[in-house]
Amino acid sequence: MNVQEIVAKADLVVDASGLGCPMPVVRAKKGIDTLQSGQIMVLKATDRGSLKDVPAWVQQTRHTLEEVVEGDGEYIFVVRKG
């Protein structure tokens, strides 16, 4: 699946591009709180730490990381709300 397809099927897209640690997970939390269980949030980030931090955040918050797409200095995380 390409990035556009992923974004198109998301219930919510949260763009944390350009934000440093810890803002990507802060924005992720704020975003996912607006969704229902089972819905999909796409999180975009450029912070290099987010590659490890978003999976750690998902682990602690009992959501599911469905996919990670990396390219052009941008990371796209597809998270299903638990």
Binding site: P22, V25, K29, D53, W57, Q60, T61
Partner: peptide, 12 residues
């Protein structure tokens, strides 16, 4: 604040 905010984002 870095650790505090990450903690809150992780539902603590």
């Amino acid at each position: 604040f870095n650790i505090a905010l990450a903690g809150a984002a992780m539902d603590a």
